[in-house]
Each structure stands twice: as structure tokens, then as C-alpha cells.
Simulated assay, not measured.
Amino acid sequence: MDVAVSGASGLIGSALRASLEADGHQVVPLLRPGRPGRGIAWDPEHGTIDASGLESIDAVVHLAGEGVAAGPWTHRHRTAVLRSRVDGTRLLAGALAGLDLPPSVLVSGSAIGYYGSRGDEPLPEDAGPGHDFLARVCIAWEAATAVAEDAGIRTVHVRTGMVLAPRGGALGPQRPLFRAGLGAKAGRGTQWVSWIHLDDEVGAIRHAITRADVAGAVNLAAPHPVTNAAFARAFAASLGRRARLTIPRLATAVPFGVGQLVDSLLFASQRVAPDVLEQTGYRFEHPELAEALAHV
């Protein structure tokens, strides 16, 4: 199987590439200008892509986008987050729709931010969207694949939760603090955290590629979300520490977009259910948090 991947050098993309290549599949990365290596040239900022390189590709996985937590949520950064997802997705979907031999499936990135902050409400794939910035980004991001769907390409929107990985990811910036005994819950810690181990992130994407009955929104989150307080305790315990501190909600009042970023990442509550994955036979390698943290 030949699989084209955008964002192939990122946390998820590099793990997906390694997994596919280990099983004998060929991964063809989409490469921006100036990036070394062999692949399909594309430049989302200028709206160009070498569509001929996509002919006869079996599947496309689209993961590229500006990092949400790459900086404070200034107007400039928020614009970059939105445009990098919508413009790149629209460009790629349009190129696929115009092919003589299009892929059978497009797996396009999204996030559980689609749902907004919803308290204790269970959130399967058919739950409605939220209204905050990240929800609006995800709505527009998913809508940008429409031309590929209209062309008959099976399209999957993988709504990813907090990814747990040995290096980088959501745990990267927190690990030194927790290791130093400075682990903390956010506020009361009652908000829900929906997480997924990197192995299952990759496994679920591969499941979406190969299962013809998987289409539309798919929640990529483990079947057992936990509260923020429980996550802090488990993460600290995995490092032989305790999480005794509390991050006050006052932290969200910091100006220049920092407060909005903190509020979205630490205080949003999303109790996500991976109904589609479970109903189509996906078996999680790491369904329980304590074991997943021990593994990473």
C-alpha cells in the first residue's frame, strides 16, 4: 500500500510512518519548500501542490497544521492555526478530487476541541460542536474536505484527544515539573481529560485507512477518560511523585492570549467516547491510563 502523509515529520506523522514502513508499506511524505528528502511537493501558503505525485496513491493521511500550543493565542497565532488547517486541507482535498486515479480514502486530522467544553456530558461522534475558538477551527477544518467527499473519496475526520508519548506531545512540557514534585491539578480538577496513547493514535489511523465502513467523524481517545485531578495523580505516580499543588483559575486572566491558551488546555472538560472505533472492531492497546503512562 502506498500512503501519502502530510505532517510526516511530526509526533504522530513520524510514528505512523515508522509503523507503516515496518509492515512493508511505502510512505510518501508531502514536503514543503526547502524540506530535504523525496516526496510530493506542496506549498499550502501559496496554494500549490504537485497533484501528479498523488495519482494512484492508495490512501492519504493529512496531519499538517500550525501547533495550537506553539505560542500565546495572539490574533496572529490564532489566524495561523486556522489558516494552516483550512487552507492546507482545502488545497489537498481539491487536488485529490481532480485526480484520474484518486485514493480510496482521505484520513484528515481534527481534534476533540470540536466539542468545546461540555462538563460531564458524554461526547460520542454525533454530539454537536462547541462555540469556542478551537471548536470553530475544527468545524472549518473538517468542512474543508468537502470537495474530496463530493468526489466520492471516503473521508475520515480523526478527532484526536491528548496524545501520550515517550517524548514530546502533551506530556513533554509537564514532565520536568511533575518529576520535580511540582505536579498540579487545574482548579478543582473535576474537568474531564480525554487522552490516547501514541500507539493507539497510530493504530486507530491505520484502522481508519483499512476499514471501508469507517467514514466521517471518529474520536481518537481511549475508552476511559479521567478527571484532571485523577490524571495529575496518575502522571505523578508514574514518576514516583505526588501531585499536591493546584493551578488556580486566576492563571487564565494572564493577558496577551496566554490566559486563553491556558484555559483551553487545562480547564476545558471533554468526556469523549470512541464509539466508532469500538463499534468497528478496534481494540485499544492501552485502554487504561495508569498502564499507558507506565508504558510511556
Results as ranks from 00 to 15, higher is better:
A186K: 11
S194C: 06
P122H: 11
L31S: 07
G187T: 12
H224G: 00
R211F: 03
A243S: 15
T190K: 07
Q270T: 13
G259W: 12
A222T: 05
E55C: 04
R118L: 06
P274W: 02
A70E: 14
R154Y: 10
A236M: 10
T155R: 13
A236P: 05
E66W: 04
V226K: 11
V5S: 01
D50P: 02
L101A: 07
G65N: 11
S264T: 15
G39S: 08
W141A: 03
H224Y: 00
G113P: 06
S269L: 11
L134T: 11
F267R: 09
A59P: 10
A95S: 09
T74N: 09
F133M: 13
T145A: 13
L171H: 02
G94W: 07
L92Y: 06
G281M: 07
G88P: 06
A217D: 09
Q26S: 13
G98H: 05
E55M: 06
P223E: 03
G109F: 00
I139Y: 00
A237H: 13
L96K: 06
H46D: 14
V61Y: 08
F284M: 12
S56K: 15
E291S: 13
A215V: 05
S117T: 14
R32C: 04
H207T: 02
P173M: 14
A180T: 02
E55S: 07
Q279P: 00
P33K: 12
H197M: 07
G128W: 02
G168F: 09
A251W: 01
L198V: 02
A208L: 09
Q26M: 10
P29N: 03
T190M: 02
R159M: 07
A294H: 07
G203M: 09
T48Y: 00
S108H: 04
E45P: 08
G7P: 05
R179E: 14
L101E: 06
W141Q: 08
I112D: 07
A51K: 01
I139V: 15
R90Y: 02
V193C: 01
T190V: 08
D43C: 10
G65A: 11
A144R: 13
E121N: 03
G203C: 09
A229T: 13
F284E: 13
G10S: 07
L198A: 00
L91D: 06
A273G: 04
S108K: 02
L16D: 04
A268K: 14
G65L: 12
A212D: 09
A229I: 14
A135H: 03
P255N: 05
A170Y: 06
I49S: 03
L54I: 02
R159Y: 04
H46K: 15
E55W: 03
G172F: 00
S14Y: 02
